[in-house]
Write a protein that binds this DNA or RNA. Sequence first.
DNA 1: GTTGAGCGTT
Length: 441
Amino acid sequence: MSQYVHVSENEGDEPMEIPTEEDGTLLLTTLSAQFPGACGLKYRNQETGTLRGIRLSDGRLYPPDVDWGRHVYIVVFPKGENSKENSTRASESSLSVKSYRRLDRQKCSDLIVLGLPWKSTEEDLRKYFQQFGELLMVQVKKDPKSGQSKGFGFVRFADYESQLKCMAQRHMIDGRWCDVRIPNSKEGAQQMMNRKVFVGRCTEDMTADDLRNYFSKYGEVVDVFIPKPFRAFAFVSFADAETAQSLCGEDHIIKGASVHISGAAPKANEKFDRRMVPNHGHVAYQGSWGPGRGGNPNPANTNMGMNASMGSNMGIGNLGLNALQLNHAMLAAAQAVLSSQTGWGPLGLTHQSGNPTTNGDPLVVATTTQAAPHTISTSYAPAPMATSNGAVGTAGGGASNSFLGWGSQTAEMPPVPHTVATSQQVPNWGSMPAKAGSGWN
DNA sequence: GTTGAGCGTT
């Protein structure tokens, strides 16, 4: 029952015949054996003239009809990874050059390989993973006594492109499906490499297109989100974190208005919260450099363990510390962690050196001298961004009642045991809701 | 000598 499917890397290229399985499906691994890095298939639908994607489930590609027919299928690569076209595109467009270079400069991190067969050796892994690119390291974790594999290992590629390709798919290794992920130990760094920025002091006449056009000169913009109704801020997501980080702390003039750019805070996320602010999983954003006027209702970067660990001693809250400096420090720290050069250093968790209180949490220092810009009856921070990671421009954010929509609060509120009177002092920006989510938008 | 979600003796 197995048949051959005609596949080419680009439309119009000479097709190659790829064998299907007995059940008529095509294994992604079979495909990627011939087209390394492939993550899917598409073909041009002759009736409509449009491209049609092929269903992929559990590493199997399914025929579009009863069988694969006589279409010539085109290999799909992870976004921006079509190797042949990259060179031409890169020379044609300065934008591509920019993002391609940046992609190149991104550092690799170790990747954990989960689900390895007990019998797989490091040589097996190397043989398999070298299809994605040059390998700098391969490890299979073993019990030191027995030498028996623990069923997982680590790999590290030389090039970030290889890493992206590798992570874009599952892997059949010695008869088992394996997953390749960024290790948990690197998660913090990943999160700090946020690609989204918060744009404050927006005016109502700024459209998503305006923002996209404006920010495109700094790097590829992949998303713009403007909450509706108007709330005087927006989120802009770049293709790479470095661009986003480089803009943080800056003021820019857009349509005659001065906007302020800062790092976008993550959606409240237990994993992140516990990791970064050991406070029983409750978030206690204290708005240390909470916005004066026109500031940031989304307390980005204020809780990277900094206020908890250093706030009171260093007076961060009142120094008006330039966000740019902070972000450079964070960027450095994030990259250091990603490349295994160091641990968290001074940004680290604070259990050793913090100010333990009766329940062992570090004291979260509230900056109470900030004037509350507006007095709104609702106490807790609304998290303007907890609504949607929505589509460009006009995703209907979950805005709602209250002034500028910041008064609403849907998630359950954490007790925030050691936060000093913030609900009164900083009524709207003092904390974030504990809303389950996938982390950064 | 077994096992099948996870997270790295250096």
